[in-house]
C-alpha cells in the first residue's frame, strides 16, 4: 500500500510565502479532499508536491513510500508514482498526443514491454471511457482543446500512467454535468485499484460523485480544519467564513 506523507511543508514563490507548515497523509485506497477559499494555497500545494521549479520549499518534507521527494525533479516524482492533474494544462504545440503519452509511459514503466499496437488499443479504450474522440490521438497535446477536453485528457493520462498517488486540481472545472459523470466513473474505477487520491477543489460539486473519507480545509497556507465529508457539506451551505471564526 502506498503512502504520501506531507510533514510541516512550507513553500514560497519568489518572495511570497504561500504554504506555512502543511501536514497531511494520504494512504493508498483513501480519498482526501483539500478545500479552501481562493488564494488559500491549494494549487500551490499541488505544484510543490509535483516539484514545479517556480516554487521553493522552505521547510518540511514530502515522502512517498518513505522516500523523500523534496529536491527531486518532477520526472523523478512521476516515476516514483505521483501524478498531478493540472488545473490549467498547457498546450504543447506540435507534440503528438500519442507520442507524448507513449514516451511518458515508457519512462514511468520502463520494464513493461507493450507493443505499439497494444498501447494504441489501450489508449483508444480509455479515450472512449473519458469521452475523447479517437481523432485526438494525432492532435498536439492540449493544442486547441476546450477546457473540458483538457480535463478528460488529464484523466486519460492518469489511467494510462497508473500512478500510486493522484492529485486532482479542480478536475471538475470546465466539465458539464455529463462529462463530469464520465470522468468521475473513470476516477472511481481507477480508485478501486488501491490508489490514494488528493482532490483539490473549491466547490463541493465533484465530491458528490466521488465521496472523500477525509476533508482538509486550507486557509492562508495552513490546514485550518480536518474531518469527514460532513465538513464539505457545511461549506456547500455556509461557505468558508465559519471556519475562519473557529
Amino acid at each position: 500500500m502506498s503512502k504520501l506523507e506531507i510533514s510541516d511543508l512550507s513553500a514560497r514563490v519568489e518572495d511570497k510565502q504561500l504554504l506555512n507548515g502543511v501536514s497531511l497523509t494520504v494512504n493508498g485506497g483513501e480519498i482526501h479532499a483539500l478545500m479552501g477559499p481562493n488564494g488559500a494555497g491549494k494549487s500551490t500545494l499541488g505544484y510543490v508536491l509535483m516539484g514545479h521549479p517556480n516554487y521553493q520549499v522552505t521547510g518540511g518534507s514530502v515522502k512517498l513510500d518513505g522516500v523523500e521527494l523534496v529536491g527531486k525533479y518532477p520526472e523523478e516524482r512521476a516515476r516514483a508514482g505521483l501524478f498531478l492533474a493540472f488545473q490549467n494544462p498547457v498546450a504543447v504545440q506540435g507534440v503528438k498526443l500519442s507520442t507524448f503519452l507513449r514516451t511518458a509511459y515508457n519512462q514511468v514503466h520502463p520494464n513493461e514491454k507493450m507493443t505499439i499496437q497494444e498501447f494504441y488499443d489501450k489508449m483508444k479504450l480509455h479515450m472512449k471511457k473519458v469521452g475523447l474522440d479517437e481523432s485526438f490521438i494525432s492532435r498536439s497535446v492540449n493544442d486547441g482543446f476546450s477546457g473540458g477536453e483538457r480535463k478528460r485528457f488529464e484523466i486519460l493520462q492518469m489511467v494510462i500512467l497508473r500512478p500510486k498517488i493522484v492529485i486532482l486540481d479542480e478536475i471538475d472545472s470546465g466539465l458539464d454535468v455529463d462529462a463530469l459523470k464520465m470522468v468521475a466513473e473513470e476516477i472511481k474505477e481507477y480508485y478501486n485499484q488501491e490508489v490514494g487520491f488528493l482532490i483539490i477543489t473549491h466547490y463541493q460539486r465533484i465530491l458528490k460523485d466521488i465521496e472523500p473519507q477525509f476533508v482538509h480545509i486550507l486557509i492562508d497556507g495552513k490546514i485550518a480544519m480536518e474531518g469527514d465529508n460532513s465538513i464539505s457539506l457545511k461549506i456547500e451551505e455556509e461557505g468558508y467564513d465559519w471556519i475562519r471564526g473557529v
Binding site: 514516451t103 511518458a104 519512462q107 498536439s140
Partner: peptide, 29 residues
C-alpha cells in the same frame, strides 16, 4: 517555457526529452 517543460516532466520525461520534444513540436509543421 517553464510551464510546458514542467508539464511534460511531471509525466516522467527527463528535461532533455521534454525540451527536445518541445523543439521537435516547434518544427513539426
Amino acid at each position: 517555457g517553464t510551464e510546458e517543460l514542467t508539464y511534460l516532466r511531471s509525466r516522467g520525461l527527463s528535461e532533455d526529452e521534454a525540451s527536445s520534444m518541445i523543439v521537435l513540436g516547434f518544427l513539426d509543421d
